[in-house]
Computed example of a mutant assay.
Amino acid sequence: MTLLVTGGGGFVMSVVAGEWLARDPANRAVILDRGALDAAAERYFQPVRDRLTVIEGDVRGDNAWEALDGLGITAVVHGATVTPISRGSAAEAKRQPEAEDPARIVEVNLMGTVRALEWARRSAGLKRFVYVSSGSVYRHHGPDWQGEPLPEDGYVAPLTLYGISKHASEMVVNRYADLFGLSALSVRLSSIYGPMDRVTASRSFRHVPNRVAHMALAGDVIRPNSLDGAGDYLSSVDVAGAILSLIDAPALRYRHYNVASSVISTTGDFIRWAAEKVPHLHCEVTAEADANIVQDTALRDGMWGAYDIARLERDTGWRPRPPQEAFHAYMDWIVQNELQPVAGRP
């Protein structure tokens, strides 16, 4: 089987392509991305590079899609996107990156999806189309009953151009599925970190687990504005497993699936777990202006809370790893893939 992954040179999508290739020596993958693989991606794909085809092109244009014809693609994961998020440190929290180029966000995220669907509906042998959406489509608050995880239905009300473009794309995917008989669905990701999380041309934001892991391993003092900032954080490796399970599923009952850990983890949790790997880690809770990790502690439900993953569990049997286990595995990956060996480092 041959999997097409758009945006496959980036963060999560590179892991999707890599996990697909690693699971079966007969699998092949095609990446469609705006540019060539960077050095990190080349290193990541090196063991499977002979089964990977990389096509450079803009998902908004015809030429890129025409280049895919005849490659025998059997499934698509459409993840090419512009992710203009600003949070993390006090300085970054003041930025509104959506204001810098709003038209590009809508053009790439929405019209890029339309072009992908236009190609998909004409492709013989295509078995499934997975659109990679986001928890940004949800409201900032919900569910109505405290403590319940956020379901896929009833709480959709995006406020940002990113969330709006993602929701609009979901609806377009649904309509193309009905019009042309496509087996198509959308996955809504919670807050993702993990292997291959790095600054790229389309994404520059790093979630709390990424920051904590790198600061701890570098020996930096971690200075959060609070230990109580929270989120539903999931490793990119677990995301890949979830998406591939949806590609494999013989039948799916829903058009939208949450992909998440389904539990809340706090900044304090990640710092405590990091200290289990780096015993001399130092943390100082400080004022927001001096903090190197800033979170709004009032954001604990809706898109910021735990997501319900019952649909995904029922239809595929997929389950995420426990958050502590996934975070420790990520720290190990950083040591093995991003850092030079240092005596005494775990």
Rank of each mutant, 00 (worst) to 15 (best):
E107K: 14
Y176G: 01
Q96G: 10
V130L: 15
H141T: 11
V77W: 00
V156Y: 04
R175Q: 15
V156C: 07
Y176W: 09
N109E: 13
P102K: 08
G154W: 10
E152H: 08
Y155F: 14
E118G: 09
L150H: 08
K127P: 07
T113P: 04
Y138H: 09
M171Q: 15
A168D: 04
N174I: 08
E170N: 07
V114E: 14
V156N: 05
G112T: 07
K166I: 00
T74S: 09
V106R: 09
A91S: 11
E107W: 13
A157D: 08
S134G: 06
R87E: 08
P151E: 10
R139T: 10
G135D: 05
I73S: 00
A99M: 12
V137S: 03
T74D: 07
A93I: 11
A91P: 03
R121F: 01
W119P: 09
H78S: 03
P143E: 06
G147T: 12
T160G: 02
G70V: 02
A99E: 12
T113G: 06
T160F: 01
T83Y: 07
A99R: 15
R95T: 07
E100W: 13
L161D: 00
S136E: 10
P151C: 13
G70S: 06
P84W: 07
V76Y: 01
V106T: 15
S134V: 04
P158Y: 03
V108G: 01
V114D: 12
Y155D: 02
S89Q: 10
A90V: 04
R121K: 12
L159E: 15
N109F: 13
S165P: 01
E152M: 11
Y155L: 04
I73Y: 00
R115C: 09
H141V: 11
V106S: 08
V76N: 00
S86C: 12
R122C: 09
G142W: 03
V172S: 09
S123P: 08
T160Y: 01
P84R: 05
P102W: 05
G142Q: 03
P151Y: 11
G72N: 09
G125S: 10
G135M: 07
M111C: 14
G163M: 02
Q96R: 15
R104W: 12
H141K: 12
Y131L: 10
R95N: 08
R87P: 01
G79S: 05
V108K: 02
K166G: 00
L161H: 01
N174A: 13
R122S: 13
S165K: 02
L110K: 10
G79P: 01
Q96A: 13
A93H: 11
K94R: 14
E170I: 03
R122F: 06
Y155P: 00
R115I: 07
V130N: 07
V156W: 04
R115K: 15
V76H: 00
Y162S: 00
A91I: 11
R128C: 08
G147A: 11
L117P: 05
T74V: 06
E170H: 05
F129H: 05
D101P: 09
S133A: 13
L126D: 10
A91Y: 12
L117R: 08
A80V: 02
G163D: 03
V76A: 00
R128V: 14
V137F: 03
S133M: 08
V132F: 12
P102N: 06
L117C: 10
T160I: 03
W145A: 13
